[in-house]
Nucleic acid binder design. Sequence first.
DNA 1: ATCATAAATGCAAGCGCTTACATTTGTTGC
DNA 2: GCAACAAATGTAAGCGCTTGCATTTATGAT
Lengths: 344, 344
Amino acid sequence: MPKLRSAPTLNDVAKMAGVSTATVSRCLNDPERVVDSTRTRVMSAVEALGYTPNFAARIMAAKRSFTIGAIIPTMDNAIFARGLQAFQEEIHKRGYTLLVSSSAYKPEVEKEQIKTLVARGADGLLLIGHDRDDRIYDYLDRQKVPALVAWSFMPGKRCPSIGFDNRMAMHALTQQVLALGHTRAGVVSGITVGNDRARLRIEGIRDAFRQQGLQKDALSIVETPYGIENGAEAFKELMSVKHPPTVVLCGNDVLAVGATRQALNVGMRIPQDVSITGFDDLELAQIVQPGLTTVHVPHREMGRKAAIELIDMIENGTPGQSHRLETQIVQRNSLGQASGFPQR
Amino acid sequence: MPKLRSAPTLNDVAKMAGVSTATVSRCLNDPERVVDSTRTRVMSAVEALGYTPNFAARIMAAKRSFTIGAIIPTMDNAIFARGLQAFQEEIHKRGYTLLVSSSAYKPEVEKEQIKTLVARGADGLLLIGHDRDDRIYDYLDRQKVPALVAWSFMPGKRCPSIGFDNRMAMHALTQQVLALGHTRAGVVSGITVGNDRARLRIEGIRDAFRQQGLQKDALSIVETPYGIENGAEAFKELMSVKHPPTVVLCGNDVLAVGATRQALNVGMRIPQDVSITGFDDLELAQIVQPGLTTVHVPHREMGRKAAIELIDMIENGTPGQSHRLETQIVQRNSLGQASGFPQR
DNA sequence: ATCATAAATGCAAGCGCTTACATTTGTTGC
DNA sequence: GCAACAAATGTAAGCGCTTGCATTTATGAT
C-alpha cells in the first residue's frame, strides 16, 4: 500500500542528510554545536524537503514553546489594541510569539481560554485586571505558568501587575471636574462584576465627591457593557430625570463617545449644557467633536514593560515585579464649567 | 531526591481512579463509551487532581487540535476587529478555538506566523487577502492545512475566498462621486505592495475615471500606511498643489478620518471646500464630523460565513467554496457636489 | 607517533496523549 | 447454566521532537 505523502519529519531530514535526528535538531536549535560541513548538508536537506518542525512535538519534548498567551476582554474595540500591539512587538523582538484570545468579558470563557493557552504550552500569560476566581491562580501555580496582570496596578495581589492606579486616576479627573463647579454628576461605567478597573474608577469618583463633602445622591451611576450604542443609551437614561447632572463621567472613551453622540442628537451643547469626560485617550477621543477630555493611559509603554517583565519571569523564574505607570489628564473641550458657575 | 511536584498527567488520573489511561482518555473525549460508575470515579479524580490535558500531546497523538488560526495584518485599529469577533464566535459555537496573530503588514512576518500556527497544529487558517508568495500555498498544501481568504473575493485563486469585490465597490463609490461633478480627485491609499485590497480599490477608481473619459492626471495618488496621522499627512500633501482636488477618496475609514481632521485643522469646510470618502464603515465613520460617506462592508457576516466555510473544509475535506458578499454605499455628509457645480 | 582533551555526533529514553486491537466482563436467549 | 455476542476496559505502539550520556573523531602538546 502506498504511503500517503505527508509532512516531512526530522527523521526524513536526518536520513536525507545522512546524520542522526539529534544532529538535525541541534542544527536547528543550537547551530554552533554542529560543524559547518554537516550543517550545510542538513540545511539543504531541510530546504529540499520543505521541512518545518512540529511544534506540538517540540513543546512536549522541550517543555518550552516560546509562546506567550494573552487573554483580553474584547477585540471589538480599540481599548486593548495599542497596548497589545506594543506587547507583541516587544516579545517578538525577544523571540517569542504571541497568541491572543478574547473572553468577551465572560469569566467562564476567560477561564477556558486560560486553560487552552496553558494546555497549548504557553510559557507565560498576560491577563487583564486582577478579578478572577482564586482557583485560576491555583491552577496557574500548579501548572507553573507565570502570569502577569496589566491595565491595573495592585501590588500584593496574587499576580504582579503592570499598570496604573485606576482609582487615583479617576479621582484626579473628578477633582478637576468638581473644581469647575459641578455638583451633580452622572456616571456611565462599564459592567463592574469581574472588572476591577471599572469598579476602581467608580471608587475614585466617590472619593472625590466625599472629599468635597458632597451628598451621596449627587452621583447617579449606570452600568453598561462597553460600546458606543450603550454609551448613548446610558446617557439618555441619566438625562431623563428632573434635575439631570451637569457632567457625565464615563468609564472609558468608547462610552463617552456614545454619550457625546446622544447629547448632540438631542440638541445639547457640549460643554455648555453638559460636560462629558472619558478614560483611556484612544484615538477616538481626538476625533470626536468636541475633543474629549479624558485620562491618558500610556498604553504602549504598558505593553512594552509587561513584555519585559513577563519574559523575565519566564526565563529567570523571578516572581515578577509590579510597575506603576503614570496617567495624565488630557484637556480637550468636552469639559467645562457647570452652567451658572461661578455663582455665590 | 524529592520529585518536583508538577502538573498532573493522564497517568496520575488513571492511577488515582484505578483504571487505564485509555479509559481516562475515553472518559474525556467520548464519554458514552465508558460506563457510568467508572466515569464518575474518573471524573472525580480529574477534579481532585485539577487535571487538564496537555494539548501538545493531544495534538500529536490525535493529529487534530480543534484550533483555527487567523493572521491579520494589524490589531492596531478596528479594521479587522468586528469581522474577526464574529468569526471567533461562530467557530467557538462549533467547538473550535481561535488563535490570532498579526503580521504588521509584513509578508515575511506573515509567513513566519503561518508556519508557527501550522506547526502548532492549527486545523485550518484564516488569511486576509490573496497576495502572498506561492510557496506559502505550496507549504500549506504539503502540510494539508486548509486555508481560506477573507476580505477579498477572487474565485479562481489558489485559496477560496469570502469577501467582497473591492474593485467594484470602489468603482461604484467613485461613480457616485463623479456624478456630483468632481473632475479632480486625490486618493489616499494604503500601501499596495502585498495588499490586493488596496490595489483593487485604486483600480476601481481608475475604472470609473476611465469610463467617464477623464484624463489620467485627474487623479493623484498617495500611498501611506494605515493610521489617522498618516491620513492627515497624505491629505496635506495632496492639497499642497496648485489645483488641489475637490474630493479625496480614501482607501479606508481610518485614513479618511485623518484626512478629515487635517482639513478641519486648516479651516476647510467639508464638503463645501473638499469632499472626503472612506471605506469600511467602521464606527469611526459615524462619529467623525461630518459623518463620513463610505462603503459599508458586512464584516460580521463575512466573519460568520468564513467560519462556516472553513470548518466545512476542515471536517469534510472539501476544497472550499468562495462567497461574494454585497457592499453598500453609505451616504453621510462628507461627500457633496464639486464646488461650482452644476455649471454649464 | 601518542595520548589526553575537547569537539562533534549518535543513541535511545522519554514528553503526555490517542487508538487499533486484545482481553475481560456483562447480557441474552434457550 | 452455557454459548454467543456485545459492551467495557486494558495493552502497548506510536505521534515528532529534545537531550543526557556514550561514543567517535579531531586537535594539539609532547
